[in-house]
C-alpha cells in the first residue's frame, strides 16, 4: 500500500525540512559530531532538540541520524537486535517519510544503522555508520554524582574510581558482574560508556572499520569512535574481560556464535534460546 504521507512531507511543501531538523540545527549537530570524531570518546555537548518521540526512546540517536542522513543512504534501525520491534519500525518509517531514504533490514546493505542495545552480528565494513541511542552518556555517573567533578576526572584522566567499581564487583560477586554498558577505554585516553549494549558486543567496537556515533538526547551529549580506533574493555590482570557464553545454540538458526535471547514459551516454563539479531538469524535459516 503506497504511503501517501511521503508526498505530504516532501521538502517542497514546506511542512518539514528535509530530514526533519532545520538546517541550522543539523549544522550544529554536525559540528558536535566532527568534534567528537576528532577527540574519540570525549562527550561533546550539543543543543538537543525536542523530537517527536519521548526521551529514552532514541531522541539522541534520531538527531544524529537526521543530521547525517542523505538521499543516497540506506537506513537500518534495530532495537535489542530486532528490526521488527515497535521502536525500530517507527524510527525507520519516520526517516522513510522525512528523508525519503531507502530502508533495509539487511546489515550489509545499510549505510547508516541506528541501534539500541546491540551491535549487529554481521561484521561492519568501511563506510558504514553505526548510530547508538544512549540513555546515560557519563560512565562515571553512578560513582560520582557531580557533573563538574566527572568532567574534571575525564580532563585529568583520573579513572581510579572506575576501577574501584570493578574491584567492588569482584569483591561482592567473585567476578566482574557488569554485563551491559561495560566501560571501555577509547584510544587509551577517555573512558566511555558504550551505551547499554551487552558486553558481548564490546569486542566488536575495537578497531571497527565502521564509524560509531553515540547520541544522548536527554543529556544532550554526542561522542564518537572513529573507524579503526582501539577500544579496550576495562578489567584486572587477574580478572580479564570475558564475554557471555551459552551452552545452547539458537533454536531457529542453530548459531553458537551470536548473542542469544532466552524466551519462555509456555505456561510450564519451557525455554527457548534464539538469536537477538533477527537479520543475522534469518539470513542463516
Amino acid at each position: 500500500m503506497p504511503d501517501t504521507t511521503i508526498q505530504d512531507t516532501s521538502p517542497q511543501d514546506g511542512a518539514y525540512n528535509y530530514g526533519y531538523l532545520d538546517e541550522q540545527t543539523k549544522r550544529m549537530i554536525r559540528r558536535a559530531i566532527l568534534k567528537a570524531v576528532a577527540v574519540p570518546g570525549y562527550q561533546v555537548p550539543f543543543g538537543g532538540r525536542e523530537m517527536p518521540l519521548p526521551y529514552g526512546w532514541g531522541t539522541g540517536g534520531i538527531q544524529v541520524t537526521a543530521a547525517i542522513i542523505g538521499r543516497e543512504d540506506t537506513l537500518k534501525v534495530i532495537d535489542q537486535g530486532a528490526d521488527d520491534t515497535t521502536n525500530a519500525v517507527s524510527i525507520r518509517r519516520f526517516f522513510a517519510r522525512v528523508a525519503q531514504v531507502a530502508t533495509t533490514t539487511h546489515t550489509a546493505e545499510a549505510t547508516i544503522i541506528q541501534t539500541r542495545h546491540r551491535v549487529p552480528e554481521t561484521p561492519l565494513t568501511d563506510g558504514q555508520i553505526l548510530v547508538f541511542q544512549v540513555p546515560i552518556p557519563e560512565p562515571l555517573r553512578m560513582l560520582e554524582p557531580r557533573e563538574t567533578e566527572t568532567r574534571t576526572l575525564h580532563a585529568l584522566s583520573e579513572y581510579g574510581v572506575m576501577q574501584v567499581s570493578l574491584y567492588e564487583s569482584i569483591a561482592r560477586h567473585g567476578r566482574i558482574a557488569k554485563t551491559y554498558n561495560y566501560p571501555v577505554m577509547v584510544n587509551g585516553r577517555y573512558i566511555m560508556s558504550p551505551s547499554p549494549i551487552p558486553k558481548f558486543d564490546n569486542p566488536k567496537l575495537d578497531r571497527s572499520p565502521a564509524l560509531q556515533l553515540y547520541g544522548a538526547g536527554r543529556e544532550k551529549r554526542i561522542y564518537a569512535v572513529p573507524p579503526h580506533t582501539p577500544v579496550k574493555s576495562l578489567d584486572f590482570d587477574d580478572h580479564p574481560f570475558e564475554i557471555e557464553t551459552w551452552t545452547e545454540s539458537c533454536a531457529l538458526c542453530g548459531s553458537t556464535e551470536s548473542f542469544l535471547d532466552e524466551m519462555i514459551v509456555d505456561d510450564t516454563g519451557k525455554r527457548l534460546f534464539v538469536c537477538s539479531d533477527t537479520d543475522y538469524c534469518e539470513s542463516r535459516r
Binding site: 583520573e158 579513572y159 581510579g160 574501584v164 567492588e168 584486572f236
Partner: peptide, 19 residues
C-alpha cells in the same frame, strides 16, 4: 563500596591492575 575498595582506590588511581 567495601573497605577493601576504599583502601585500594589510591593504588588503582596510580595504575594498579592486579586484583
Amino acid at each position: 563500596v567495601s573497605a577493601g575498595a576504599n583502601i585500594g582506590e589510591r593504588l588503582m588511581a596510580v595504575g594498579a591492575r592486579h586484583y
